[in-house]
Measured scan of single mutants.
Amino acid sequence: SMGQARALMGLSAQLDEELDFREGDVITIIGVPEPGWFEGELEGRRGIFPEGFVELLGPLR
């Protein structure tokens, strides 16, 4: 894990590789696949999402 982030708003996945989450969910960050995107894990599910949907809870490791 690289850190954690809290969802500022919900994301309804449009693509298979995207992660669904609700506002307030705390997501474990597991990677940065490309600039502007995070890869995360939530409730046993993994996927990517735009960084603008979340606030980091501390610096990434």
Rank of each mutant, 00 (worst) to 15 (best):
R22G: 10
I48F: 12
G3C: 06
I29P: 05
L15H: 14
R61M: 10
A5C: 10
G3T: 05
E18G: 10
F53S: 13
M9N: 10
E41S: 02
R46G: 00
F53M: 07
P35K: 13
T28L: 06
V54E: 02
G40I: 08
R22V: 12
F38M: 06
E23M: 01
M2R: 08
L56A: 08
G36C: 01
Q4T: 14
Q14E: 09
L19I: 07
L56G: 08
L60G: 10
I30N: 08
M9V: 14
L8W: 00
Q14F: 07
M2K: 03
A7N: 03
L15V: 14
R61A: 12
G47N: 01
G40H: 09
L8T: 11
A7G: 01
G44I: 03
L11N: 15
F38V: 00
R61I: 12
V32M: 09
R6H: 01
S1C: 13
E41H: 04
E39G: 02
R45I: 04
D20R: 08
F38I: 03
T28Q: 08
Q4A: 06
G47I: 00
W37P: 07
S1I: 15
G40D: 09
E51W: 05
I29S: 02
G44E: 01
G36S: 00
R6Y: 11
T28V: 05
G3I: 06
R22N: 11
V54L: 01
G58H: 10
A5W: 05
L15I: 14
R46Q: 05
D16P: 14
I29D: 03
R45D: 04
Q4C: 11
G47M: 02
M9G: 03
G58Y: 07
L11V: 08
E18M: 07
I27Q: 06
D20F: 09
I27V: 05
V54P: 05
E41D: 02
P59L: 06
L42F: 12
G40S: 04
S1H: 12
L56N: 00
P59F: 03
R61H: 11
E55T: 08
L15P: 07
A7D: 02
I30G: 02
L42T: 04
L15W: 03
L56F: 10
T28G: 08
I48Y: 11
M2P: 09
E34A: 07
M9C: 14
I48D: 00
G10M: 01
R22P: 13
E18P: 09
G44A: 00
R46K: 10
I27R: 08
L56E: 06
L15Y: 12
G52S: 08
G31S: 11
E18D: 10
E17G: 14
D25P: 00
D16Y: 04
M9W: 07
I29N: 07
E39V: 11
R46F: 08
E39Q: 09
G40F: 10
L19K: 03
S12N: 15
D20W: 06
R22C: 15
A5F: 01
E23R: 09
L56P: 08
L60A: 12
F49N: 05
P59C: 03
I27H: 04
E43H: 15
L60S: 11
R61C: 10
W37K: 15
D16Q: 01
Q14R: 15
F38H: 14
L56I: 07
M9Y: 11
A13F: 10
G10D: 15
A5T: 03
W37V: 12
A13N: 15
R6S: 03
E43A: 12
L60N: 08
E43F: 11
F38A: 00
F21W: 04
E23S: 08
G47A: 00
E18W: 09
V54Y: 04
I30M: 06
E18N: 10
E34D: 06
E39N: 00
M9D: 02
E41R: 07
G31R: 10
G58V: 07
S1K: 01
A5R: 06
E23N: 06
G24D: 08
A7F: 00
E51A: 15
L19W: 01
L19E: 15
I30F: 09
G44F: 00
G24S: 12
G47D: 02
L19D: 08
Q14D: 13
E39C: 12
G44C: 01
F21Y: 01
L15A: 15
E23P: 13
E34L: 05
G31D: 11
L15N: 15
G44W: 01
P59Q: 05
R61T: 13
D20Q: 12
D20L: 04
D25A: 02
F49L: 07
F21N: 05
E43K: 14
I27L: 05
D25C: 00
E41Y: 06
G31N: 09
L8S: 07
E23T: 11
M2V: 05
Q4G: 04
L60C: 10
M9K: 15
E18Y: 12
R22K: 08
V54R: 06
D16V: 09
A13E: 12
A5V: 03
M9R: 15
G44T: 02
G31L: 00
M9A: 12
G40W: 14
D16M: 10
I48T: 06
A7L: 05
E41T: 15
L60Q: 15
F21A: 02
V32D: 05
G10F: 00
G3Q: 00
F21S: 05
V32C: 11
D20G: 12
G58D: 10
I48C: 05
I27N: 05
G10I: 00
L60R: 13
M2G: 04
L60K: 10
A13C: 06
D20K: 08
